[in-house]
Amino acid sequence: MDELRHFAIIVAAGKGLRMDQKMKKQYLHLDGIPILTRTIMAFDKCDPVHEIILVVPKQEKMYCKTHIIDPYGFKKKIHLVEGGKKRQDSVLKGLNYIRDKMSRDKEAIIMIHDGVRPFVNQNIIKDCIWNAVEYGACIPGVKITDTVKHVSSDYFIQKTLNRENLYNAQTPQTFKLDLILRAFEHAGKILFLGTDDASLVEHLGHKVVIINGSKLNIKITTPEDLVLGKYLLTLKLS
């Protein structure tokens, strides 16, 4: 029986507007190394990951090859794929690239990860893979500990939500290839735009299991996140 292939799709096609910097957030440096490069490093050193698909804007493919990939001697194959207008379009382009590489009768496990989450740890990646093999769909998440308020458009509190079963979703969101392709196909037919990849699978009617993520698995989108990221590096987490 052929080995089940594990692909990581790292999505870095966004505009990075919230960072308020001239350079896109994924290309900003943390201790001399671009954030996106550090994210790739997390998957490059994870043994169960076989290949990496890096989805970036068409006009930035050469920049990424020259400044993000080539100087750092990655061991795994990294494929550069042109992104789309929205994140969902970019992920689909990465999925279609993998689908075209695979024989129709072959299954694979697909991890979809934010390019600006460089602190994902090895245990989270591995746990997502094994749970996706078992259940078809798995995401990491962190249980909400703060009180959560539902507010109106004019910022008056409508109600306090029960936080007992509320989680903040993280990435890598991980799926069997056939399942996530069906979810994207279904979403395209009904023009459903999800807030994350798991929401497309949920909309298809398939259950998604959640595992413990980490509060350190931050998404760097604001200047405050960048400060926190620099501090996390001093902890030598890996």
Rank of each mutant, 00 (worst) to 15 (best):
L4Y: 06
I9C: 01
I10Q: 01
A12K: 06
A13W: 04
K15R: 12
L17M: 11
L17C: 02
M19F: 06
K22W: 08
K25S: 12
Y27F: 15
H29R: 13
G32E: 05
I33N: 07
P34F: 04
R38M: 13
R38F: 01
I40E: 01
M41D: 14
D44N: 09
K45N: 08
K45M: 11
H50E: 06
E51F: 09
K58H: 15
Q59W: 14
E60Y: 11
M62T: 15
M62Q: 15
Y63N: 10
K65V: 10
K65C: 12
K65L: 12
T66H: 12
Y72F: 13
Y72R: 09
F74C: 07
L80R: 05
V81K: 00
G83K: 04
G84N: 02
G84V: 03
K86H: 15
S90N: 09
S90Y: 04
L92I: 04
K93F: 05
R99T: 03
D100A: 09
D100W: 02
K101Q: 15
D105I: 09
H113W: 08
D114S: 15
D114W: 07
N123P: 01
I124R: 01
I124P: 00
I124Y: 03
I124T: 11
C128I: 00
T145I: 08
D146L: 14
D146T: 14
D146W: 10
V148C: 04
V148T: 08
K149C: 15
V151T: 07
F156L: 11
F156E: 12
I157Q: 13
Q158N: 14
N165V: 06
Y167L: 15
Q170M: 05
Q173N: 09
Q173K: 06
K176H: 11
L179F: 06
R182C: 01
A183V: 05
A187D: 03
F192L: 10
F192K: 05
F192D: 07
D196C: 14
D197A: 03
L200C: 15
L200Q: 13
G205C: 00
H206T: 08
V208G: 03
I210Y: 15
G213W: 00
S214F: 05
L216M: 14
K219L: 10
K219T: 15
E224C: 13
D225K: 07
L226C: 04
L226F: 14
V227C: 02
